[in-house]
């Protein structure tokens, strides 16, 4: 359970980073949400063998990271943590897809390997940009932005509560399993028979706790509306940010920049 607990604490850490201050932090959440969503759509829309075409897209996360004062190693670690998952998704591609796609001198690289690497690259890009979005904006503000961009309110509230109760659930889970492990006296657990009651107990406790938290929110005037203290102004800077990046993404997507640059180089040298 420690790993779940750690992961959730990390979510909290992301949220905490969002209270920082930088050019990116100060942008209206909507601008960041639109841009990031657009970025993700663009990256995902590439065909399975896309690899070189993806590299220029690194600009977006790298530049926002540089402008946002976030601890870079931390974000990199977060991204690295999800890569095994992507690896798992694309694991069998090299086995099934053996057709040669690229010849690097004498080495023939099959389509399977390329698509595997492409999947991992795209995962790193999309998840990385999503992390950066939350770490510069905060989960609650992202939800608000989605709401103001047209996501139904019911979903927003659900999302916010889900987020809130993930913490509750894991805290309760950590406590319950700790108690269970201690009583197991170092043995490898008490067997499966104690799991059923354990889960039932956990659900009841989580429910009770969630109710108490809801109570604490209600008595402080909560009426289904989460307020975030982010300033909401969609000004010149926001327009510039959204339009600027969108143009970059569209150009990258439609023109094959790497090939053009490559051609320019070979043109110079020949």
């Amino acid at each position: 359970m420690r790993s779940i607990d750690g992961a959730v604490l990390d979510l909290k850490r992301l949220d905490l980073l969002a209270t920082g201050d930088s050019i990116i932090h100060r942008l209206d959440a909507r601008a960041k949400v639109i841009t990031t969503l657009f970025f993700i759509v663009m990256v995902v829309s590439y065909k399975r063998y896309a690899l070189a075409e993806l590299t220029p897209f690194l600009f977006f996360p790298v530049i926002t990271l540089a402008l946002s004062n976030l601890p870079i190693s931390y974000i990199l670690k977060k991204i690295a943590a999800i890569l095994p998952l992507a690896l798992f998704v694309g694991l069998f591609n090299p086995l099934f897809d053996r057709e040669t796609q690229v010849l690097l001198g004498p080495v023939a690289i099959s389509g399977g390997w390329i698509s595997l690497i492409s999947i991992m690259g795209r995962s790193a890009l999309t998840v990385g940009s999503a992390f950066i979005l939350i770490a510069t904006t905060g989960f609650i503000a992202v939800c608000h932005a989605l709401n103001r961009l047209g996501m139904p309110r019911v979903f927003t509230i659900q999302l916010l509560f889900l987020y809130r109760y993930i913490f509750v659930l894991t805290e309760e889970a950590t406590r319950t399993t700790r108690a269970r492990e201690l009583r197991a006296c170092g043995k490898k657990g008490l067997g499966f028979s104690s799991f059923g009651p354990l889960i039932g107990h956990l659900l009841i406790r989580t429910w009770a706790r969630a109710e108490r938290i809801h109570m604490a929110m209600v008595v402080r005037g909560f009426s289904g509306e989460f307020h975030s203290r982010q300033i909401n102004r969609f000004g010149h800077k926001e327009y510039l940010y959204v339009i600027g990046w969108s143009l970059v993404f569209i150009i990258l997507r439609t023109e094959d920049i790497t090939r053009i640059v490559g051609a320019a180089f070979t043109g110079i040298f020949s």
Partner: peptide, 14 residues
């Protein structure tokens, strides 16, 4: 049960 926002400030501001 009472403190549920990411920072103390935001909790007191709730």
């Amino acid at each position: 049960d009472q403190l549920f926002m990411p920072t103390v400030y935001e909790d007191v501001a709730f």
